[in-house]
Computed example of a mutant assay.
Amino acid sequence: MRRPSSAARTPLTVAALAALALTAVPAQAATPAAHTPDAPSPVAHRPTHPSHGQQPTAPREFVALSEVAPTIRQDIRYFTPHNFVGEPVDGYRSPMCLVTEDTARALARAQRAFLRQGYTLKVYDCYRPQRAVDHFVRWAADPEATKMKGEFYPRVAKDRLFEDGYIAEKSGHSRGSTVDLTLAKLPAAPTRPYVPGEPLTPCYAPKDERFPDNSVDAGTGFDCFDTLSHTDDARVTPAQRANRQLLKKGLERQGFTNLPEEWWHFTHEPETFPDTYFDFPVSRRSLTHHH
């Protein structure tokens, strides 16, 4: 039986909720979301293939999260150069979150509960096309591409990323029911833009030293390739552990399961497409057949 969160509930007025809905514009991107230690489904990869000259499109079960849960903040890191690769990732043509409708509705329910407690969800990554995962694999094979090591994997040798499970050739994100996300305490100012070439700070540094993010302190930044990112790692402070558990328990109530190696990684179950890895781009055009 799931116990309710111990976080104090701070009711929001109707006016405050309305204001939040109007201002919940996707925040500037700032960190990556590339860990993909997801165990691949036993069924073979089956991306959607377009007719000649056309881009693949999403099945009707996919929606834009902003249309179902507009108050959830969006900080889509792979659309920007602020990620472990250090450049915008293939397949991210818009800074938007696409997920299956079941996942979006579950996130909307979780968001309503968090808003009552004075928090908002913020997503870093949602559906991830296979071409983006392929980009990660190519990057991992290049020993010279280490310009973001100082932030995202300071204590891990790049040639260990596959063996240690931080990078894989398939990701559950490509099935549409997995999201990377966190919480931000309201009111939450936007995260400032990342400036390419700026000094890097380890993702496990104290919160006031690492890249500024408007999220709660969960012990590491998003997409931190380090064992400190393990949800139940004993080295985090009590306050950091409480923030991780607040997120985890709130999402579990809506059918999400956490990946133990990444405090920010959750999959809504049962998955709408448990055996299919899609490859349509992250863009509004991928959903145009819906209308």
Results as ranks from 00 to 15, higher is better:
residue 2 R to E: 02
residue 6 S to K: 00
residue 8 A to E: 14
residue 10 T to Y: 01
residue 15 A to T: 07
residue 18 A to E: 12
residue 24 A to H: 10
residue 25 V to K: 09
residue 25 V to S: 10
residue 28 Q to H: 05
residue 28 Q to W: 02
residue 32 P to D: 14
residue 35 H to V: 02
residue 36 T to K: 08
residue 40 P to H: 05
residue 42 P to S: 09
residue 43 V to A: 14
residue 43 V to S: 10
residue 43 V to Q: 12
residue 43 V to T: 10
residue 45 H to A: 13
residue 46 R to T: 09
residue 48 T to G: 05
residue 50 P to H: 09
residue 50 P to Y: 04
residue 53 G to N: 15
residue 58 A to N: 14
residue 61 E to Y: 00
residue 62 F to H: 08
residue 68 V to T: 03
residue 69 A to G: 04
residue 73 R to G: 13
residue 77 R to T: 08
residue 79 F to W: 13
residue 79 F to E: 10
residue 81 P to W: 01
residue 82 H to C: 15
residue 84 F to W: 07
residue 88 P to Y: 03
residue 88 P to W: 09
residue 94 S to F: 05
residue 96 M to E: 15
residue 105 R to G: 04
residue 113 A to H: 12
residue 114 F to R: 08
residue 115 L to G: 03
residue 118 G to V: 05
residue 121 L to N: 08
residue 121 L to W: 02
residue 133 V to H: 04
residue 133 V to E: 05
residue 134 D to S: 13
residue 136 F to C: 12
residue 136 F to Q: 13
residue 138 R to H: 00
residue 144 E to Q: 13
residue 145 A to W: 06
residue 148 M to F: 05
residue 149 K to V: 02
residue 149 K to C: 06
residue 151 E to C: 03
residue 155 R to T: 15
residue 156 V to G: 12
residue 157 A to L: 11
residue 158 K to P: 11
residue 159 D to G: 00
residue 161 L to K: 13
residue 162 F to M: 14
residue 170 K to W: 06
residue 173 H to A: 14
residue 175 R to T: 01
residue 176 G to Q: 12
residue 177 S to T: 06
residue 179 V to H: 09
residue 179 V to F: 03
residue 180 D to I: 05
residue 183 L to E: 11
residue 185 K to G: 03
residue 191 T to K: 08
residue 191 T to I: 09
residue 191 T to M: 00
residue 192 R to T: 03
residue 193 P to E: 00
residue 194 Y to N: 00
residue 196 P to R: 09
residue 196 P to T: 08
residue 199 P to L: 04
residue 202 P to I: 07
residue 202 P to R: 14
residue 213 D to T: 06
residue 215 S to W: 03
residue 221 G to L: 12
residue 227 T to R: 14
residue 227 T to P: 14
residue 233 D to Y: 09
residue 233 D to Q: 00
residue 240 Q to T: 02
residue 243 N to T: 04
residue 245 Q to D: 12
residue 250 G to C: 09
residue 252 E to K: 14
residue 255 G to V: 08
residue 259 L to G: 02
residue 260 P to Y: 06
residue 262 E to W: 05
residue 263 W to K: 10
residue 263 W to D: 07
residue 263 W to L: 10
residue 266 F to P: 08
residue 267 T to K: 00
residue 270 P to L: 09
residue 271 E to H: 00
residue 272 T to V: 15
residue 272 T to H: 09
residue 275 D to C: 00
residue 277 Y to L: 11
residue 278 F to P: 08
residue 281 P to V: 03
residue 283 S to Q: 13
residue 285 R to C: 04
residue 285 R to F: 12
residue 286 S to G: 15
residue 287 L to I: 04
residue 288 T to R: 11
residue 290 H to W: 04
residue 290 H to A: 14
